[in-house]
């Protein structure tokens, strides 16, 4: 379209200028390190610090060598458990809290703030507080259970192999439950009152109205919450590191991808770091997260119906 109007339009420099800060900062601090990390995962490092190209050897080693694959699988399945607990507990309770908040009540804004509060606290503080609460020596956990007659149920949950990971997952759920709650809350607020009124006139109970009308309308938000949880969980590291240290004990029962990566890349105690294998673990984390995101984009995002309200 060669119109005089188009001719007068010169190259849009202002767009370049507006984009530049973000693009430069993002490239330097995110994209380049990410690509360099992927590059490093294709090399081995010799004792005299030379990097030798090894192709996909590191990945083969990670997936097939008995020692590496055992550690990797342990971390991966622990991470899957960590994610499932978040999906089931965090997101369903988050949805319940959101619908309770939408229903009204005088103390609504107080509850909203209180429930969201732990999310903004530092993970180190969260880890420390829960360590104290659950401490078998001076924790308030045991006394609270005793007060309601359930003292016999108390166990040193953070130290037992079967319960350490679920306990840590629930601590993380407790901290981050505000996020799905808020997202669901906003989505539910966006549903016009007329729809619900119409349903009520048609004789739908509150329960039916929720599952037949509200829930389908917030399905896109359910997807977003799920993918945020997935990405967040497969990158989780800080809580486990704070509470259990890099060795993720007992017997690696709380080892997830993040701690496995940390231990491999930086080493711990007398174990020296192995940057190439560490980069390989990071590469696997990227692949896992990418796989989840692709599932979300192609299987969920495309199929789920969105309605303009």
């Amino acid at each position: 379209m060669q119109t005089p109007h188009a001719k007068s339009r010169s190259f849009p420099f202002h767009i370049v200028i507006f984009l530049a800060p973000a693009v430069i900062v993002y490239t330097v601090f995110m994209i380049i390190p990410l690509i360099d990390s992927l590059r490093l995962s294709l090399f081995t490092i010799t004792d005299d610090k030379r990097e030798i190209f090894a192709g996909l050897n590191n990945y083969v080693l990670l997936l097939t060598d008995p020692k590496w694959s055992a550690a990797f699988q342990n971390a991966f399945w622990n991470n899957v458990k960590f994610f499932i607990i978040h999906m089931v507990v965090q997101n369903s309770i988050g949805l319940l809290l959101a619908s309770l908040l939408v229903a009204g009540g005088r103390a609504r804004s107080v509850y909203r703030t209180l429930i969201f509060a732990p999310t903004v606290l530092s993970v180190v503080i969260i880890g420390f507080i829960w360590n104290l609460i659950l401490s078998p020596l001076w924790g308030v956990g045991e006394s609270v259970l005793k007060a309601v007659g359930l003292g016999a149920l108390f166990a040193p949950w953070l130290g037992l192999a079967w319960s350490a990971l679920p306990t840590l997952s629930l601590i993380s759920v407790w901290q981050f439950i505000g996020i799905p709650m808020l997202l669901f809350y906003v989505a539910l607020l966006g549903i016009p009152e007329e729809l619900i009124e119409a349903a009520r006139v048609d004789g739908a109970s509150g329960w039916t109205a929720f599952w037949r009308i509200k829930f389908p309308l917030i399905l896109p938000t359910v997807g977003i919450v799920a993918i945020l949880t997935f990405v967040g969980n497969f990158n989780a590291f800080d809580l486990i590191y704070t509470v259990k240290g890099a060795q993720a004990g007992p017997q690696f029962a709380t080892d997830i991808m993040g701690t496995f990566f940390y231990r491999t890349f930086f080493g711990s105690q007398l174990q020296l770091g192995n940057p190439a294998m560490g980069a390989t673990v990071a590469g696997m984390m990227l692949l896992i997260i990418l796989a989840g995101v692709i599932v979300y984009l192609f299987l969920w995002q495309r199929r789920v119906a969105t309605y303009d309200l």
Binding site: Y26, F29, M30, I31, P33, L34, D36, S37, L40, I227, V231, G232, N235, F237, G258, F261, F265, F266, P275, G278, A279, A282, M285, L286, I289, L290, V293, Y296, L297, Q301
Partner: peptide, 20 residues
Amino acid sequence: LLALGILALVACATPATPAP
């Protein structure tokens, strides 16, 4: 655009190994 955004999210979230 959406795909790019999600990828960016992944990139942010993946530990960039050489950064430390």
